[in-house]
Simulated assay, not measured.
Amino acid sequence: MRLLVLGGTHFLGRHVVTAALDRGHDVATFTRGVSGDPPDGVRALHGDRDDPAALPAALDGWAPELVVDTSCQTRAAAENAAAALSEVRGYAFVSSLNAYANWPPGPLGPEDAEPTWSTDDDEYGPVKAFAERTIGAAVGDGFLTARAGLIIGPHDPIHRLGWWLDRISRGGRVVVPDALDQPIAAVDARDLAAWLVGAAERGLSGAVNATGPVGMTTLGGLLDLCREVTGSDAEWVPVPEEELLSAGVEPWVHLPLWLPADVARTAWDVDTTRARELGLPSRPLAESVADTWAWLRVNGRPPMQKLAHRPEPGLPAELEAKLLGRIADDQVT
């Protein structure tokens, strides 16, 4: 079938394209043309999603039957997609848990039991909720919105898991939060991508919490996997939350994937019953971590996507040194 990927040249979109080609679809991507090219055999369409004339002009009579939308970041982009693509049979839209008005910290129950944002501001969560409503109203049956959480895997330009792998691979004393037992859940981009293509094919409808299952792992478990796959001699130096915050360490940014205790307690308590019923897989976390490390070793640090809601991840070396200087050797685990 004719399948259009809105996005499609990096990370999740790249994996969506691969999955669609593997399933025999006639694939096109629609991007601004600044983040690389799709694989051979894919129609590379270019334009600005915020321009209402761009997508119809790029399609130029090529009528997609299926859509996987990985790149909607503005209200205008949502309105333009709704106007141009309302006749497709299946539309899988990548939203976010941030579309929920009470996340974080959650917890989140079944999709239809939780309120989504209805405000008019241009923050990330409200824009995703607006896009869900706008495109969903235009497409009707066959519109699925995948509210994704933490997405990991090869080709990740956001570099949260990648930063930990890189830092841990260098060994030595590594600053970590003293809350290594905080829960965390993730979905591999390759699993999500293939599932999105299948959802569009099947014409699935409604909202789905598209992340890993509750109890998947802890932050400490994930970091231990990073140490294992890199073969590192890294030693964890746990630092209490109050000391991290007083030193200017930003949760989720300077120590990627770490959240303050009052948020971490429930942030990954997300009901994924519908996702499991609809076949969203969850490959072993060790496989995702090992494959990400293997990809990083070959390709190096990917270019950072310069988006306002995605600051550069990682603990600056001078801040790490300052924190390590405060911690006695006998606190190393």
Rank of each mutant, 00 (worst) to 15 (best):
A247D: 09
F143E: 02
S205D: 01
I151L: 15
R147L: 02
S169R: 09
D224T: 14
A207T: 11
V229S: 12
G220R: 05
V197H: 08
V139H: 05
V253A: 14
G153N: 06
W163H: 06
E235K: 14
L144Y: 10
I135H: 00
I151P: 01
T230K: 09
D166P: 00
R190T: 10
L161T: 02
V249D: 08
A194H: 00
F130I: 01
V214P: 00
V174I: 15
G212A: 10
D156G: 09
P240V: 03
P238T: 08
R227G: 13
V239Q: 02
A210G: 11
A179I: 06
G149H: 02
V176A: 06
I152A: 14
G221A: 10
L245T: 15
L180F: 00
A185N: 08
R133S: 12
D178E: 09
E201H: 14
I152Y: 00
P183R: 09
G136S: 09
V239C: 10
H254V: 10
T218S: 15
T218C: 10
V127Y: 05
D188W: 02
L144R: 09
W195L: 02
A207L: 11
V237Q: 09
V175P: 01
E241F: 03
P177A: 14
D188S: 12
G125A: 08
E242R: 14
V239T: 02
D224C: 02
E235D: 10
H155W: 14
R202S: 15
P126G: 12
E201N: 09
A185G: 13
L222V: 04
L161K: 06
E201I: 07
I168N: 07
N209G: 06
G142E: 06
E241Q: 15
V187W: 00
R173Y: 05
A194L: 01
D156C: 11
A137P: 02
I158C: 10
R202D: 15
L196Y: 06
L244R: 03
D166N: 13
V237Y: 11
A200R: 04
S205Y: 05
T230M: 03
F130R: 03
L150H: 12
L219I: 11
A247T: 06
A199R: 05
L223W: 08
R202C: 11
A131Q: 04
A179S: 15
H159C: 14
V214R: 13
L165D: 10
G171F: 05
G140P: 03
H155Q: 13
C226K: 05
V197G: 12
P240A: 14
G231Y: 05
V175T: 03
L144V: 13
I151E: 08
G125D: 03
L204K: 01
D156S: 08
G198P: 05
H155K: 07
V239H: 04
W252E: 15
E241V: 04
E132R: 01
P238L: 04
